Computed example of a mutant assay.
Amino acid sequence: MRSQYRAATKYRSWIAGLNTRLGKGSRVLDLGCGSGVPVVRDLVAAGHRVAGVDISEVQIRRAQKLVPHADFIRADATSVDFPDGSFDAVVSLYALIHIPLEEQPPLLQKIAKWLRPGGWFLCSTGHDEWTGMDKNWLDSGVAMWWSHAEVPPVGRTA
Results as ranks from 00 to 15, higher is better:
residue 19 N to T: 13
residue 20 T to M: 15
residue 22 L to F: 12
residue 26 S to V: 11
residue 27 R to M: 14
residue 28 V to H: 00
residue 30 D to A: 03
residue 30 D to Y: 00
residue 34 G to A: 09
residue 34 G to P: 04
residue 35 S to L: 05
residue 36 G to Y: 03
residue 37 V to I: 12
residue 39 V to C: 09
residue 41 R to W: 03
residue 41 R to Y: 07
residue 43 L to S: 01
residue 44 V to F: 04
residue 44 V to D: 01
residue 49 R to Y: 06
residue 51 A to F: 04
residue 55 I to N: 08
residue 57 E to L: 08
residue 59 Q to A: 11
residue 61 R to V: 10
residue 61 R to I: 12
residue 62 R to Y: 15
residue 68 P to S: 02
residue 68 P to A: 00
residue 69 H to C: 10
residue 70 A to Y: 01
residue 70 A to G: 04
residue 72 F to G: 02
residue 73 I to D: 02
residue 75 A to Q: 11
residue 76 D to H: 06
residue 80 V to E: 10
residue 85 G to L: 14
residue 86 S to M: 11
residue 88 D to I: 12
residue 88 D to H: 14
residue 91 V to A: 00
residue 95 A to P: 02
residue 96 L to K: 04
residue 96 L to D: 01
residue 97 I to S: 03
residue 101 L to H: 13
residue 101 L to P: 00
residue 102 E to R: 13
residue 103 E to V: 03
residue 104 Q to F: 01
residue 104 Q to Y: 02
residue 107 L to R: 07
residue 113 K to H: 13
residue 113 K to S: 10
residue 115 L to G: 05
residue 117 P to F: 08
residue 120 W to H: 13
residue 120 W to L: 08
residue 120 W to N: 09
residue 120 W to K: 14
residue 126 G to Y: 01
residue 130 W to I: 09
residue 135 K to R: 14
residue 135 K to Q: 12
residue 136 N to Q: 04
residue 137 W to G: 07
residue 138 L to K: 14
residue 138 L to I: 09
residue 140 S to F: 11
residue 143 A to E: 14
residue 144 M to A: 12
residue 145 W to K: 14
residue 147 S to F: 00
residue 149 A to C: 09
residue 152 P to H: 13
residue 153 P to G: 08
residue 154 V to S: 11
residue 157 T to L: 10
